[in-house]
Write a protein that binds this DNA or RNA. Sequence first.
DNA 1: CTGAAAGCGCTTACAG
DNA 2: CTGAAAGCGCTTACAG
Lengths: 340, 340
Amino acid sequence: MATINDVCKATGYSKATVSRVLNGTGQVKAATRDAVLSAMQSLGYQPNAMAQALATNTSNTIGLILPHFQSSYFGSILHHAEQSTQQASKKLLVVNSRNTASGEREAVATLANQRCDAILLYSRHLSIADLAALQQSVLPPLIILNRQFEDNTLHSFGLDQRQLAEIAMQHLLSLGHRHIACITSPLASETGQIRYAVYQQMLEQQQITMQPGWVHEGTNTLASGYQAVEQLLSSQQSVSAIFACNDDMAIGAIRALFDHGLRVPQDVSVMGIDNEPAAAYAIPSLTTVSLPIVQLTQDAMTLAVSLANKEHAQTRHQTYSGELVLRESTQALTSANSSY
Amino acid sequence: MATINDVCKATGYSKATVSRVLNGTGQVKAATRDAVLSAMQSLGYQPNAMAQALATNTSNTIGLILPHFQSSYFGSILHHAEQSTQQASKKLLVVNSRNTASGEREAVATLANQRCDAILLYSRHLSIADLAALQQSVLPPLIILNRQFEDNTLHSFGLDQRQLAEIAMQHLLSLGHRHIACITSPLASETGQIRYAVYQQMLEQQQITMQPGWVHEGTNTLASGYQAVEQLLSSQQSVSAIFACNDDMAIGAIRALFDHGLRVPQDVSVMGIDNEPAAAYAIPSLTTVSLPIVQLTQDAMTLAVSLANKEHAQTRHQTYSGELVLRESTQALTSANSSY
DNA sequence: CTGAAAGCGCTTACAG
DNA sequence: CTGAAAGCGCTTACAG
């Protein structure tokens, strides 16, 4: 590919002035700019981003670390992150943390070596102390997604996990349900722990004694929701409602109930969290909690871009809350299903 | 961050030998390697990937261009592409083409400027001639996804779109259906055109006269499948089966039928293409065509990695076919629904 | 086994 | 308004 030297030879100008027209910086006579531009054009010259990065110490690149890419949830984050990046004329570097602590660490190191100007880390496995230490060892500013904490070296954008779970449980309780099963998100994650803790606490508040067999740990997948219900049913426990900690598990659960001849919501109410697109089209459609994930992503990216542009920003910690989305999969407890 | 010069100062060795231990190249005395290594360790030294790229003219980076990131289909491609990249100790650069021709072009330019060692382009909008021209203007080898053609400057990995659509239509026809609606993928794309053409041709072969109102163009989304059925129903056309050109539209269609009091498959059979995870858990579960997208992605990435490693490879053109996945949403035509 | 030097393709003070 | 020169952080023949 053509380099800046080729443009110099073609025009007779020095690298300095070619660089100036390339970047629109400094003073350049109109005539020479035109000459340079047309030479670039005809040579098909494109500046080498690596060389620019090395010279300027900015790569115009933003890193994004996600546990994986296989859900509409992460698809949405990815989509909006990419949009924001493109609007800011930067590039998005995407790395997968394989949903492990070491993966999160390695991914940060990788992106730091690529000299990303800012790194968004969707973290599930590192402690706040780990994250703070990681930021010390690494130049680009870290923006932590999916966590809530206070720390003045790190930025964070997270969902109010307590509130999300409370909305869901509150809805089920307000419908009169007392025998409520829970299909949890992985309990190794903070998200999983908080949602489950809220489930327990709200049952306690209502003086409801949680029965063994009500709780099944899932993996946020359709299949794990399905399996959880099969276990629930085989445990002979009777519940009138199921709180699935995400939509995919809720949809898997509904299918399992269906396969066992149980109707949703007439026999069992089911609710999820996420409000993924499929929730509205499922049969029955899924009552759930919608997450402002688009807003969260955009806000985090706005910060990432200004950090990348070296606009000094104070550490920010932002928390978002969700909203109940009422649909068909839940209904008030009736004598018909109170036996469950 | 620490640079190679810091390591030199700490150890007293030159950049050349530090570089040698870093890359494990050339001869280095064990003692000096240990010294260098421990200095790197204590300094937290990490080589600057930009500088390495500039010096070696390889970025260890593979580019991936997708129309968007919001579907399990692209999520799966992304996931497996990232896996392969990580296994090869390279980095994945992801760019969105915004599902437009200019977006595809710009994305390639962007990734070429980043000096990606190979670029995977999921292309829907550029002609083969355009693609070949693009390859001429750009250094890194292009691997085209989602297209079938012969060209000795370009590699390609694509699905046999004819075969996919044929399997689907064949299934419906073999069940005795003759009044079959089609919800197409966007007809601006080659995929959309081929699937629709197969639909028409197979009806013709059976001497079935396609009725106006049977065909509705969708956008591959749940919502567009839903709308298509509403239009179909309002057109007063009677069909006993619907061929939706992807699973999301099929699921949207089923929901619309449900909302209008029509049962699937008793009143109308519905089938899709993709075999996305949700298809197995939908109620009714969805008959569809599974795509070997994992295999395709892995094969394409294997090629990308060897091209990135400068292992000269002949241009490859690979085509993959799908398989029928029988589930609940289709059944044989009966007297009960022959009136539709 | 090790080092000095040139080079990768840019940018950016500094002079003029 | 323009150019010469140094520098960004590496690698890689070439000597020794």
